[in-house]
């Protein structure tokens, strides 16, 4: 083990703080965006809306079967060649949302499908209308059973933010790569990097496992 240069760590702590905030903003933005894509998308798939269903299904397949790295390179370097220019941050947010949207659609759709046909028939038999059934019977149960998958997707997206450094977004990875190149303080930079992700993910992960437990208790006793 080489000696750790604590002075280096202290000097660069503020940089890591800023990069952490940026990574967090990106991750939360992507989670929000992908949920906004996911809800209508899953409803379109569930209700088999004509034409739209095919578009959504194709999107889900594409977003889930291509790496974020290739998506980002295409958005950031590919599209400007045909006249579409974006900032790195916009690109990163778009790419992460594009990726996460596909995963969220699947998670929510599976949640909706977990509510069985008999539940819907039982709701029909007391005269509830379709919109009432969706709002009062299906959605609460669907969201509850989708919580574990949604939580996994959120953590997945937070971790995937690590890739955006490749398109010059000043996130934790980008900063680390830069510092290693500049000062050759490999151990210190990587320590700060790992610490950054632990600070980012662990609270979220704990929060979600709390939520999952609460939901499970509410649903199944």
């Amino acid at each position: 083990m080489p000696d750790i240069d604590f002075e280096f760590i202290v000097i660069h702590l503020p940089h890591y703080g800023r990069a952490l905030l940026l990574t967090l903003a990106l991750g939360l933005g992507a989670i929000l965006g992908s949920l906004l894509v996911g809800l209508p998308g899953s409803l379109i798939l569930h209700f088999r809306a004509p034409v739209l269903r095919r578009v959504v299904a194709a999107y889900v397949e594409f977003s889930r079967n291509t790496p974020l790295l290739a998506q980002l390179f295409f958005l950031y370097f590919g599209l400007p060649a045909v006249g579409i220019k974006w900032s790195g941050f916009t690109c990163a947010l778009t790419g992460l949302t594009f990726l996460g949207g596909g995963y969220m659609i699947e998670a929510l759709r599976a949640g909706i499908e977990a509510v069985g046909r008999p539940q819907i028939e039982s709701a029909l038999s007391i005269g509830l209308s379709r919109p009432q059934i969706a709002r009062l019977v299906v959605l609460p149960q669907a969201l509850a059973s989708a919580v574990p998958a949604l939580a996994a997707n959120c953590i997945f997206l937070l971790k995937e933010t690590s890739v955006v450094g490749i398109i010059a977004v000043a996130d934790l990875m980008h900063l680390t790569q830069g510092l290693i190149g500049l000062y050759y303080k490999t151990t210190e930079s990587l320590l700060l990097l790992v610490a950054g992700y632990v600070i980012l993910i662990v609270p979220v992960s704990l929060l979600f496992s709390r939520l999952e437990k609460a939901v499970r208790r509410a649903e199944f006793g």
């Binding site: 971790k159 995937e160 933010t161 890739v163 990875m173 680390t176 490999t186 151990t187 790992v194 993910i201």
Partner: peptide
Amino acid sequence: FRVIPILVWLFVFFFA
């Protein structure tokens, strides 16, 4: 592996 991204691990093995 659940908490720390794969790319970070890649850096750790490649550089550290």
